[in-house]
Structure formats: C-alpha cells, structure tokens
C-alpha cells in the first residue's frame, strides 16, 4: 500500500504513511503531547530516566531534536545478562547523538544488586525494582525541573487496568501524563512525553532511525502481572483497534475525579530514615531495606 501523503511505499497502515511521513507524524505527536499537557518548556532542565531501551532512547532523541535541555540518568539494578547490554547500547547512543548521561546503581546505593536481593526475599522483583528505581530517580533529580520517562500508551493502559483489577484507586490516582503536581521541592515532577504513542509505533520509530537495533528483555519481566495484562491488551487491540487509546482516553476524562479520591486516601510525608517523600512514616524502599537487613 502507498503512503496517504505521497507515492512512496507505506511502512505502517491505518493511517498509511511512508518512512518520512511516519517519522514526521510521530515527532509531531510527541510535541503535541508536551504542549497539550504542558509537560515542560525550553527553559526547564529535563532529566530523562533512561534504561537504554527503545522508549527512553526515543524520548532522549526527540527532546534533543526539538531543542530541549536534556540529560539521561540510568539506574543499574544489577541484573546479569541484561543491564550490561543496555549500558553498552546507551554508551553508543550517547556518543552518536551527543547526549550526556550518568549511571547510579543499586549496588552503590543499597550495597546489593537486584539479583542478590531476589535471592533473599519472596517479594516480586519488579515490585522491588520499581520502588528502588523511583527512590533513586527522585534522589538524583533535585537540580532538575522534571523527570521525563519513556512510559507509553501501552504502559499507561496496562497500569490503569492493573489498578482497576486490584481495586487500587489510590495508585490509579497517581497515573496520568504528569505526576507529582503538588508544589514540593522534595518531589520532582514526572512527565511522560510518549503518553499517547503506542509501543509498536515507538519500536518502528527506533528501527527506522536505527536508534536501537538489539533486542533486550529483562529476565524478570515474564514473571510480572503487567506481562499478563500486556498479552491480554494486545489480543484485544488486535481484534478491536483503538482499545488501548480508549482505556487511556476514558481515564483522562475522569482523571480529576480519580485524583480527588487519591488525595483523600494518601498524603505526602517524609520518610524518617531517608528523608524522601513517603505516604507513611517509612517509605516503601526503606521498609524493604529493613526487611532485608540492608539498613
């Protein structure tokens, strides 16, 4: 099939675009998302939480191309046969596109890698990893205005469904293209420039631009509830195009009501151990570290 806008061969259907028009449309959608949700402006300092995966490399590449002030922060959890490859990818990308990044590791912060931690607990590795990563991102982003993450349409639709299925209204209220809106110098605002872009289109974008050519999959990902939801959502999307967008759009229409419920259920304190934001006296990260006798 041909491109809707020129005579060249399409690389994507519904709508049909050739390589050049797809890339153009994709980058415009990211720019529109930044403006629609007022994520940040060109005077602000943006720290991109990067994993070396397709999503965060896409965020770094587009924001730099659009003229934003960006730097990457990569958290090395200590996952063998995975993280070393994505660090290599990140180093290569950083040199090629002249984008600076720093690495902070679980080992250096918590004296233990995620691989070591999983041997000492029955807690889900993705749960632990998420909590520690969020703590480090916040800790190392104090001099930045925002943390931009590579969360995409698929991630958001999955999170909405996961929280609905577990009846976690409080967690549902923390979703959206921008979080941490409360004025608080202890918590850096988090934004999602790929909020309305599908995982499939992001992969296509990275392939067409040669941003990411190697396949890396976290060895813990198949054990997660998110993985089950992802498979189910992709089946639904295949049968009914637009399912993921419909879920996210429905959430956005009701976001104000959901946020109000969340605000009633939880208020921000500071953890008395690490002094980082927490909904209780001790934050989740310190709770896990105590349980593991790492603090």
């Amino acid at each position: 099939m041909k491109c809707n806008l020129c005579e060249k061969k399409a690389v994507i259907l519904n709508p049909s675009y050739c390589k050049e028009h797809f890339i153009d449309d994709f980058e415009k959608k990211v720019e529109e998302t930044i403006k629609q949700f007022n994520l940040f402006n060109k005077n602000e300092k943006i720290l991109v939480a990067t994993s070396g995966g397709k999503d965060s490399l896409t965020v770094l590449h587009i924001l730099k191309k659009l003229g934003y002030n960006v730097k990457g922060l990569l958290i090395d959890e200590g996952i063998k046969n995975y993280r070393e490859y994505t660090i290599d990818d990140m180093n290569e990308f950083s040199k090629k596109y002249d984008i600076d990044f720093v690495i902070k590791s679980f080992e250096e912060e918590y004296s233990s890698t995620l691989d070591d931690i999983t041997k000492k607990t029955t807690l889900n590795p993705c749960h632990i990893c998420g909590i520690f990563r969020r703590q480090l991102l916040n800790k190392y982003s104090k001099e930045y205005d925002v943390i931009a993450t590579g969360h995409n349409l698929d991630d958001e639709a999955q999170s909405i469904l996961m929280n609905l299925l577990k009846s976690q209204t409080n967690l549902l209220s923390r979703l959206g293209p921008i979080t941490g809106l409360k004025k608080d110098d202890k918590f850096t605002r988090r934004v999602k420039p790929l909020y309305l872009l599908s995982e499939k289109n992001i992969r296509l974008y990275t392939f067409l631009l040669g941003l990411k050519n190697t396949f890396t999959e976290c060895p813990y990902s198949s054990s997660s509830f998110r993985n089950e939801i992802s498979i189910m959502l992709n089946e639904l999307e295949n049968e009914n195009q637009g399912t993921k967008s419909n879920i996210v759009n429905h959430f956005l229409k009701n976001q104000d009501k959901i946020k109000k419920i969340g605000e009633k259920e939880g208020s921000a304190n500071l953890c008395y151990i690490c002094n980082e934001p927490s909904s209780g006296k001790i934050c989740n990260a310190c709770n896990i570290l105590k349980e593991l006798k790492l603090i």
Binding site: S51, G52, G53, K54, D55, Y82, T86, E199, K200, R203, F207, F215, T216, E217, C218, S221, S222, N227, S230
Partner: peptide
C-alpha cells in the same frame, strides 16, 4: 520478526 515489547 522484531519484537515490539522490550520488557525492561
């Protein structure tokens, strides 16, 4: 056949 899901 390239996988879309990076799972990371």
């Amino acid at each position: 056949i390239l996988s879309v899901v990076s799972g990371g």
